[in-house]
């Protein structure tokens, strides 16, 4: 049956001992699950990330959601969408500039952010600056969900938010990063107000391609003053680029 293996990444042709899965295959599965579990409990390396973000000459703000632990984060997604009080105060201290805010959040895999986020910004930010797009302070969020970008964007008076966030780890990838873009972010928006680029990682959608797509979407959102389903209509254009 092994000739079938070339057609799919599915776990076929793994053999059997009796009717059970053989040892090597069983442990291989366990290892993939272990990587996924470790990624869920991985911690955002905020200090290292802040150091690396210095290259962009933008203020960096450290933020935290209302979820106080990973256990609570997993059980209460509502708390992961809200900023804690200290974070709101930190944002209040920033000058509103109507720019776009770039946010890094751990989500369900801090590993994804630790490994992919800075590289993406290194490609994206020069494009934005060259296009004379104004940038708000960079934000690092711990225990954050996608919609926390709405609170951050509203606090900063940002015209648009982009949140880079760790996606739910699968068995095949534990380092997959998503990017969600929202025009005029404010609390209460739903997912149909956003555009998403998914599966950003070296073996998935390469960072360079993601940066191009994101830059295109940002320009489109700013010029057409929309994001979400309405902007999605032009996705065909993206794939032809």
């Amino acid at each position: 049956m092994s000739f079938l293996k070339e057609f799919t990444q599915a776990r076929i042709a793994i053999g059997a001992t009796g009717t059970s899965i053989p040892t090597a295959q069983s442990l291989d599965f366990k290892l993939a699950h272990a990587h996924a579990r470790d990624a869920v409990y991985s911690v955002m390396d905020a200090e290292l990330l802040a150091d690396e973000l210095m290259q962009f000459n933008l203020p960096v703000v450290h933020l935290h959601s209302q979820a106080t632990s990973r256990e609570q984060y997993l059980q209460r997604p509502d708390l992961g969408r809200l900023l804690n009080e200290l974070s709101i105060n930190r944002l209040a201290d920033q000058v509103e500039n109507n720019g776009i805010v770039l946010i890094l959040a751990d989500g369900l895999s801090a590993t994804a952010i630790n490994q992919n986020a800075v590289e993406l910004l290194r490609l994206l930010i020069p494009k934005l600056l060259a296009a004379k797009v104004k940038l708000a302070p960079l934000c690092l969020v711990e225990q954050g969900r996608v919609a926390i970008a709405d609170c951050i964007g509203a606090e900063l008076g940002a015209s648009l938010s982009v949140i880079l966030i760790g996606e739910r780890p699968g068995l095949s990838a534990a380092d997959s990063m998503g990017a969600y873009l929202t025009y005029q972010p404010k609390p209460g928006l739903t997912d149909d107000s956003r555009n998403c680029i998914s599966n950003i990682r070296p073996e998935g959608l390469p960072v360079a391609v993601a940066a191009d797509k994101l830059f295109y979407l940002i320009q489109e959102a700013l010029s057409r003053k929309i994001s979400g389903v309405a902007l999605k209509d032009n996705e065909g254009l993206l794939s032809h680029k």
Binding site: A10, R11, I12, T19, I21, F29, R168, G170
Partner: peptide
């Protein structure tokens, strides 16, 4: 296949699991 749904990204029961139960 092998409990691993590579489209929906979750883990369910494998072909082997069903044979185990039948046995």
């Amino acid at each position: 296949p092998g409990s691993d749904d590579i489209m929906l990204n979750y883990q369910s029961t494998s072909f082997h699991d069903a044979l185990y139960l039948r046995k």
